[in-house]
Design a protein around this nucleic acid. Structure first.
Lengths: 131, 131
DNA sequence: TCTTGACTTAGAGTAACTATAAAGACTTAA
DNA sequence: TTAAGTCTTTATAGTTACTCTAAGTCAAGA
């Protein structure tokens, strides 16, 4: 049983973001107490985890909303949900590949700068110096 | 020698984004011809590559601008640039780790749905069904 | 010459936060 | 018991980084 703030802390999202997600209709199953306060349960935290996951791989909020609506609709939508997760997973794998490429470039640049410093050399790589 | 459109196509960013970046001061070294048309050279494409890289690991535009200004300032800023690249690289490594975690969750969910479909079973994982 | 098409800029629109502000309920110290 | 403080709520404004639209310039082809 967690308030928005507690759930936000536990799941490592900002309170603002969690409220924003709530307003966006991502947690229609979260109950409120007599004072209108949202009370997240452990099973709700699992759902926050999924939303975090989908957002982190670039799924937009409209699509996340759609996915949660499929969940609510029940077991008849399992195939459709499977397809969404499958393509999301493929998308995430591409991102992983891309991120590895970018990391290589950063590795290269870091080594390059380190050598420059070590040898007290000029930066011939700088586009400014190329002219 | 490329126009904005050609450079955008070659570097796989949108023309809009490239113009936006140009307006943001990311390419102060790009020359224009007599008709005021931006002409990117091969060395400029390298720079687009760096900007793409920094953006893709979440560096904000203000910081990218700052980095490019350090480049323009010349060799006296090499140490500072090294520090930026180093911390960016560390940041990217954390993202890689995080992305791998998220990919695991997606793997798990995909398998879960696949089993559900195979066995024609009920979705007990769905937060809706948990109540 | 006319018009087509690629370029330019300014500025509006959008997504997803992110921050602020105002209102209401509970807690506790004076 | 009342005032202060802390929590929550909502609505709404602001921010970032695009993304798109519109209006203008200019050179080359029909």
């Amino acid at each position: 049983m967690y308030t928005v703030k507690e759930a936000a802390d536990k799941m490592e999202v900002s309170e603002h973001t969690l409220r924003f997600w709530a307003k966006s209709g991502f947690f229609p199953f979260v109950k409120r107490n007599k004072n209108n306060i949202r009370i997240f349960q452990d099973s709700d935290l699992e759902w926050i985890k999924i939303v975090k996951c989908l957002r982190s791989v670039g799924i937009d909020n409209k699509s996340i909303k759609k996915y949660i609506e499929l969940c609510i609709k029940g077991d008849s939508t399992i195939k459709e949900r499977y397809d969404i997760i499958k393509s999301t997973r493929e998308q995430a794998q591409n991102q992983l590949k891309e991120l590895k490429n970018q990391l290589e470039l950063l590795d290269y640049k870091e080594k390059y700068y380190r050598e420059l410093i070590k040898n007290n050399a000029k930066d011939t790589w700088n586009p400014i110096n190329k002219k």
